[in-house]
Design a binder for these strands. Structure first.
Lengths: 345, 345
DNA sequence: CTGTTAGCGCTTTCAA
DNA sequence: TTGAAAGCGCTAACAG
């Protein structure tokens, strides 16, 4: 009881016949080929195509031309605002360039990442953008590099987002400097007793932010006791749980908690509140990323702004660039945003 | 000064030669083709493929087989948590089915939507999922229907998410009933004077939620004055601005504001606060969707839960289904979630 | 400027 | 079981 007679799609051949011209002429009239075809014919072909509802088969075109119009995007989790903002920037830029974006999700698993990169190669994309945060000392790192290098050797372009521990063009987010700057700003506000919700130990992004923060404090002669540093998942729930642990361990001997990203910071705020502690008033909180929602939590969250959409856009622009830009990394600026979650003391 | 010698990728031909077998045998050993090939040869081909780093060209495969492994997804805005959650569900389900997801963004523009659908047809995807909210009285509606019907006629599958004003399989979200139920629950809590931040007039989702809410109140003999209903953009800023206007217009003659989605509700809460009004205490607020962030705003937001990831998953499952399921709509349950933003009065 | 024809990389008859 | 060969839909020489 199959429904469809599933007649096959209209082909260029059909259009050519309908228009009474050759296949080649039809092709030339329809693809961007430089105007080497009689305006008269062109129109006839266009009309025929419209009448028949013809849509060029992109796969066939790709095979014939030996190149596609797709960019493959790899993220850790598309539901995370950090990645979805970046993805939005990429999709927009891709659209402007007439490119199609395909999307895969690693779920933070390096083995899966490698597997997906292999699979994505089959698409023969023009560009592969890897936005999942890299972890250090990855067993699979050399394999990943090999796979990506092979891809570049066949004319593909690879762009990483965040940090470049691997030898590919990268949109660099200065996690270290941003966090360091944040630390200084907070000391200026009068804070002295810090704790950090640090994320996974091996996650480079998390590590850089923590290190930057601690170094920033150190510049002011402030150290953070090891007991005030909690490692946990890079998620809202990770932040929530870590804050829990922290509170049980340290009571209130801390006046500011820095979480290495905003979703964690938001989890921290809720955890504080669940402990009867008022974020901002009793204990200040700061995050990193400046995802949209942090303006709407209470108190509004102090954080380090990353122009996430622009990051995505830059990634694609770099990938498509020629000449020197081709290999140069892009640096995006970060900016400390002080809000109500860290009032002056 | 081009960098790459860009040697072309390894082809099946190369593998066959390396393994010393025919093209056909190589093909049969590598694709899932039923075991009609000598285990000995199989192994030799596999090894050769591995040695050469061969990845099958998906475009070529698609041309040869006349069918792809891709599902095309159309959303209004991937940075919106509503859509990014749905997308996450789709990507996950697609991955399990060995499918690749391509993504396009309409930005809420119906003309653009039509254009994108046309373009996406070129990919010859197995499935097209349209998650952008539909607007009523769309000029382009018939054209969209025509385009999608043509797609289905050639064996493609179309699934809509949300409401089915067009004749295609749909994952139905019962916006009307959920809002109606919410209204009842709020009346039970003791609320009497309502306002609504209603979103764009023509957006079906927004309209259904508003109508459901008003009807729910009507059941209890409560009507909402027209002046208490503000239409605005379906975004956080839309909610913020509408709340502003509402407050200037009505002062505090209202004890609960219902926003037709969560991001708007969050904007409303911030707007209230900017007016020195405490959400929850002074004026209650309710939203719709139950996106993750609403647990972390203060007070936590009362809303109607939609299992967004599951919606995405269902969409793909429906698309891939055979037989009767093929055309049946999926209904996902909604659930009223009462939180601190609507305390008992 | 137009049409003929040879591919692109892969799958799948069809014989052997 | 295996291989030769004919496509899949399209583009790009190459002649006319």
């Amino acid at each position: 009881m199959d429904l469809a007679g599933a007649r096959s799609p209209v082909t260029l051949h059909d259009v050519a016949r309908e228009a009474g011209v050759s296949l080649a002429t039809a092709s030339r009239s329809l693809n961007g080929s430089t105007r080497t075809v009689n305006a008269d014919y062109r129109e006839r072909v266009r009309q025929a195509a419209a009448r028949l509802g013809y849509t060029p088969n992109l796969s066939a075109r790709a095979v014939a031309k030996g190149t596609t119009m797709t960019v493959a995007l790899l993220v850790a989790d598309i539901a995370d605002p950090y990645f979805s903002q970046i993805a939005a920037g990429i999709v927009r830029a891709a659209d402007e360039a007439g490119l199609i974006v395909t999307m895969e999700v690693t779920e933070g698993d390096a083995a899966r990442e490698l597997e997906l990169v292999r699979a994505m190669r089959g698409q023969r994309p023009r560009v592969m953008i890897l936005a999942g945060s890299r972890t250090s000392k990855e067993r699979s790192s050399e394999q990943l590099t090999a796979e990506l290098s092979a891809f570049e050797a066949t004319g593909g372009r690879v762009v990483f987002i965040s940090q470049n521990d691997l030898p590919f063009t990268t949109v660099l987010i200065d996690n270290y400097a941003g966090a360091k700057h944040l630390a200084s700003s907070l000391v200026d506000l009068g804070y002295r007793d810090f704790a950090a919700i640090a994320g996974p130990r091996q996650l480079i992004t998390a590590r850089d932010r923590l290190t930057g923060f601690l170094d920033g404090l150190a510049q002011h002669g402030i150290t953070v006791p090891a007991a005030h540093i909690c490692h946990s998942a890079f998620t809202r729930d990770g932040g929530y749980e870590a804050a829990h642990n922290l509170l049980e361990r340290t009571g209130r001997g801390v006046d500011l908690v820095f979480a290495v990203n905003d979703v964690m910071a938001v989890g921290v705020m809720t955890a504080l509140r669940d402990h009867g502690i008022l974020p901002g008033d009793d204990i200040a909180v700061a995050g990193y990323d400046d995802i949209p929602l942090v303006r709407d939590v209470t108190p509004a969250l102090t954080t380090v702004r990353i122009p996430l959409e622009e990051v995505g856009r830059q990634a694609l622009i770099r990938a498509l660039a020629h000449g020197d830009l081709r290999v140069a990394n892009a640096h995006v600026p970060t900016e400390v945003i002080l809000r109500a979650s860290t009032p002056r003391r």
